[in-house]
Design a protein around this nucleic acid. Sequence first.
RNA 1: GGAGGGGUGGCAGAGCGGCCGAAUGCGCUAGUCUUGAAAACUAGAGAGUUAAUAGCUCCGGGGGUUCAAAUCCCUCCCCCUCCGCCA
Length: 425
Amino acid sequence: MIDRKLLSSDSDYRRRIEAKRVAPELLDEFIKTDEQRSELLVIVEEKRAVKNKFSKEISKASPDEREIKLAQAGELKVELEKLETQLSEIEARFRELILQIPNPIHETVPEGDEDAYEIIKTVGEPYGPPKMDHADYGEHMGWVLSEQGAQISGSRFAYLAGDAVRLEFALVQWTLSLLAQHGFMPIVPPVLVRESTMEEAGFFPTDRNQVYELEQDNLFLVGTSEVPLSGLHRGQNIEARTFPIKYCGFSSCFRREAGTYGKDTRGIFRVHQFDKVEMFVYADPKNSWEIFEQILAIEEEICQALGFSYRVISCASGDLGPAAAKKYDVEVWLPSEGTYRELTSCSNYLDFASRRGNIRIKDENGSEFVHTLNGTAIAIGRGITFLMEKAQQDDGSFAIPEVLQPFMGGEKFLYSKNPERTYEK
RNA sequence: GGAGGGGUGGCAGAGCGGCCGAAUGCGCUAGUCUUGAAAACUAGAGAGUUAAUAGCUCCGGGGGUUCAAAUCCCUCCCCCUCCGCCA
């Protein structure tokens, strides 16, 4: 949720909202509604003060005074009720509008459409394609069963099988241990959440069409554990000394992928369901930009340890979600496509979500809204996709990245058929 | 799924139409005492909004009755106990 006062008083604030391709009419209507609301609120509060005074007096009045005052209070009540009805109508509209207004971009965000991104850095070199692309390789190894997935659930669903599953858990274990060193507490959150949770996390109403809904129970499947992690401290006013509060959530993630028809249809690069370890930080507003860079550094650390060639881009204003003030994508070189593709990303929401969830930080001088940040540690489907091209050997075997070997029973290579493995016949 | 009980300040817990933004205890802050701490004693403090120590709002959320609601009614959510079912 934006700061309503800044919108009308600070022209730069407004400009940075409009950079997200917001209709100016929305902002104008909101400002108008906000003004009406403030004016009416003053009137209503004055009336309430009079009414409250009357009520107090009635309790102390003598019997005949009482009669008169009761009659007067009755009139006042009728008057006030009319005004309060008006006020609640305006407030409903106010709320509807403010929920549609995105967080302004940070001044350093490049403005423009999706391809106006800025390359922050490039690490490692691009290299030529392997024998098999990730989709063929997944089939070759017996790791990805797309056809069966499509049969039982539809397109963009797949079974993950065999050593790929061991690889998934190795990735998770390794990532969790690395994040523990960085002070992140692991969490397995609920993946079904209420509508209010989606709204407070900054996803509703704007991204509603990307989310699976369980109508019968009025619950929604999360697209990232960011959502339940963002709700973990809702309504709390937390001591400043406990910051930053760092969590890493492991969960399955569900995305409708609406509007991506025909895009990335091979393999498990883009699927409706995948597992992910997500970093989430509640930060003191004083240093949230530092923490933003720390989260990026961890994402890079993970990429480097897995041997990826990658680049970091600062996403353009038109590519930012409603809640993010700034977002970095870490894009890894995908040789079969000869291009960099997104593996992880991180965002600083500033106080956008904490305003909705009413999460504050307090010290001797009072309290303010906290900042929330999130970043992908490892998205399994994507991670394995990139690894299948990076670690694929000429003979078709798979060279397990060194950091994962301890979590794979010390093995160094994986094969499509391994006679020592009784499930591979 | 069925039956009952309950949600009040950081925590525990009283209040059950007006004197209640709320007793009391613990915890917290400051002071006295002490070399220091503890104990004891004294004083102080709920949150939000606002320029404001004014006003308004907040006793799980929403709605209603009333001049007046923490207190009565409806509804939703959550927690606990018992029965049933279950990984």
